[in-house]
Amino acid sequence: MSGYDQVPEAARPFLGPTPSGKPVPVKVLRKDRLDWKEKVALIEIFKGMGFTLREMFRPRFTIQFPEEPFPRHPSVKGRPVLAKNPDGSIRCVSCGLCEFVCPARAITIDPGETSDPIQREPRDFQIDMLRCILCGMCEEACPEEAILMSDELLMATDARPKALHHLEDLLVPVEKLQERIDYTKRMYRKWNRPQS
């Protein structure tokens, strides 16, 4: 026998004639005749009008986006930014790991000495947001917790040069990024280092 028997009973009518050639009677569940109430449809019309009238006074669904922030979980990967310490110093030591790991080659670092000549910090740090794919690899590679994915998602500009973010555009006080730091610490511990 064919696979006919394996088909659930309810679906068999769709298979056409049975193997024996006799068509399976199809049972129609829908009413094929409307009663007079349904034909006139007046009641339904008024029900519908009532429904839409009620909906008019229900609270709005829309979030007024640019003014009204919408809640974002720390797992959101927005524009990568550089953390600035409370004392104003830059966390990044321009080690170049993010530059190297970036699959889109969006990062260009111009390293330089700090006022303390044994320390290094970026003189300029460019992220080309036209190239960045927000993958977060830079964040994962950074040994200093200096580059972090912020929750900023508005990156559109009207001119190409504006899409090239420089050091001063990228610096963000570290307190604003604390949630993300905690989150990534937790997650990277979970993913990268199985605790023995």
Binding site: S94, G96, E99, F100, E113
Partner: peptide, 9 residues
């Protein structure tokens, strides 16, 4: 060469 470039670049 100080602080100019990472060697892997």
């Amino acid at each position: 060469f100080r602080f100019k470039q990472r060697s892997w670049d």
